[in-house]
Amino acid sequence: MASKLSEVLAAAKAENRAALIGYLPAGFPTVEGGIEAVNALVEGGCDIVEIGLPHSDPVLDGATIQTADDIALRGGVRIKDVLHTVAEVAAAHPEAAVLVMTYWNPVDRYGVARFAADLAAAGGAGCILPDLPVEESEEWRKAAGEHGLDTVFVVAPSSKDHRLAEVTAAGSGFVYAAAVMGVTGTRAQVGNLAEDLVARTRATTELPVCVGLGVSTPAQAAEVASFADGVIVGSAFVQRILDADGDQAAALAAVRTLAGELAEGVRRR
């Protein structure tokens, strides 16, 4: 049986377009406000959402997501709130695939099997674990497999071809291709590393390849959609909420509008 994530990506492909994947941390700016914001992403046009588990040490995130994580953690967000966010979004939008993106230590501490079970029970489709390399991932993949969760691995422009084959063989759902070498955050240009990486990744796998890091505008989304199966946008959504400066209605309108514009972009490939 195809996973939820695979189904959603296949549906986008059948429409001859790239999928749109949006990211927001849970608990940002509050737990309930964060749920509304993720729902707005889906309503605006995201096919898949990644819900971030805010972390004290987000070493792969730039200043924008660090700020959001700080706000969420100072607000007291807990792992149970992240799972609650997944459950609320999955219930409101059964058409969307809901992923969790988290650094490894919170999962390790919560309990690997327990986290997989609770994420699946909440209606989550899978997990992205950006600091868990394939070599350290066996326990997680076993638990994820038992609960029907996909595990999305990241590949980077620095990944050599033999390495790409190892990573894609271990993953499921899709492959997350990092467009640039660096941390999360918006960038003026996506850069030409991404297209080459997507081509090299496709040579190793049948899985869809989605591109993230630095993508923030509809034009960039259209550009990436011309060579990838999905377009991942995170910091641009977070920045809209930061810019709203506490005005939740304005924040929701801004992220819904951006999702809509990006959804047009991925159809312009």
């Binding site: 600091d131 990241v154 620095s158 390495r163």
Partner: peptide
């Protein structure tokens, strides 16, 4: 070989740093 001292150590790094 994987950098473990008993249960401790290893290599928990992002893919971008694996080659380096």
């Amino acid at each position: 070989a994987r950098g473990y001292f008993g249960a401790y150590g290893g290599r928990f790094i992002p893919e971008a740093l694996v080659a380096a």
